[in-house]
Design a binder for these strands. Structure first.
Lengths: 218, 218
DNA sequence: TTGCCGCATTGATCTGGATCAAATTCGCAG
DNA sequence: CTGCGAATTTGATCCAGATCAATGCGGCAA
């Protein structure tokens, strides 16, 4: 539980007690919805375990996955009145939930914490810019390779460095993240596996030729 | 000059004097570079007049325009050590520049200001998510219509509401923003003009059928 | 006025990725 | 183990938008 709260906040020292008193640990099962695009924003979440799919829908059903939240990530920061995207659990997910009131009180009381949240938000913005480059100007193969390297780096930063990249999300999720169809994602995986650039394993992918992949990601 | 600083900060009352003492008004001519992707981030900028093109480059020359900054917008917030994108002037541009030191001092001294900047950053993040949906899941015609309506709204929020949308950027800039080629942008404009959805005028576009455009943007 | 020079438009053709259509494999409940 | 539904892979064809290639059209310097 101490560990949970510690991950919860990515903070140290004096703020822990305050956070602990305000955080509501919550659990979601695979497919459960944390919140929906346009719904009134009641809570801010900090993911403590599992992976969350973040997405927007167009009225005709087209879907854009805007990100995958991993442990340590914050959700719902961009709250004005309503959430800007929907979020649901990929596999089991644990979060710390903060009510909007608790969140604003916390932020007002602790400028240092706001600074951290602001750093987090600007980092998110940088990632969003990279994703715009990827969506607008990269080929299918480049998209997939950048995605795999990006996920590998994110897991590595969380202390799980490995040549095997876990991919708990479906091919459809990946397609909707990269602006491709499921068929193109599948074919591109198959081609990269034939190349011996990657090895497809249950629940993920093993990076076999990082040199080539880094060269493509440029 | 009072007006300048006022726009500069989008703030009220007691913070103005502080800001005024730290801001360095600067002017750029068409095509001038404010800063370059990867360069050490010395300054934060607040645009006071004109339009700034924000973009990233791939090593082979492919370009993604990640945004157009209008008066009131902040640039370089996502500074860690280096700028995440390049910025240059489209036509004449005036900005207030804050040195990194002045910026961090200001932010540490005035939590209220940090809160404003954080709101601005989260708003930017929301826009970035919308742009991801546009780049990943929209057709060329939808992209262009969403772009025009988006620019119209942004000018309107700045107190310049009009059915004529100014487009000071080139067709190539628009193409690189929407993930299209210049030819597709030109053809799509021509088709929308034939439709009587828009009227192409020097330096911009006049919205002729906002109902249809809003329906497409959904 | 003339002649560039960048932009923009228009046309012809090509192609990467979408769409349509089956298999195949996997997970798992019975 | 067996059957079923969902996810994935694979194949055939199509098409929106890219690419290649002129042509048009200001703006502006001489």
């Amino acid at each position: 539980m101490v560990r949970l709260v510690s991950v919860c906040a990515s903070l140290t020292g004096d703020e822990l007690a305050l956070l602990e008193s305000l955080a509501t640990p919550t659990h979601f099962s695979s497919g459960d919805t944390l919140f929906t695009q346009g719904a009134e924003a009641h809570c801010v979440y900090n993911v403590t375990s599992g992976v969350v799919r973040l997405y927007q829908l167009l009225s005709d059903g087209r879907r854009q996955v805007v990100g995958f939240a991993l442990p340590g990530d914050f959700l719902g920061l961009a709250m004005r009145d309503a959430y800007g995207f929907s979020a649901d659990a990929i596999g089991d997910v644990a979060v710390c939930a903060f009510s909007r009131g608790a969140y604003t009180a916390l932020v007002d009381a602790k400028p240092h914490l706001l600074k951290r949240l602001h750093e987090f938000a600007t980092h998110e913005l940088t990632l969003a810019h990279e994703q715009m480059m990827l969506l607008g100007r990269r080929t299918a193969e480049e998209k997939l390779i950048c995605f795999l390297l990006g996920m590998q780096q994110r897991w590595a930063r969380l202390g799980k460095p490995s040549v095997t990249v876990p991919l708990p999300m479906t091919r459809q999720d990946i397609a909707d993240f990269l602006g491709l169809t499921i068929e193109t994602v599948s074919r591109t995986f198959t081609r990269l596996a034939k190349d011996k650039t990657i090895l497809i394993v249950p629940g993920g992918v093993r990076v076999m030729n990082p040199e080539r992949m880094n060269a493509v990601a440029a």
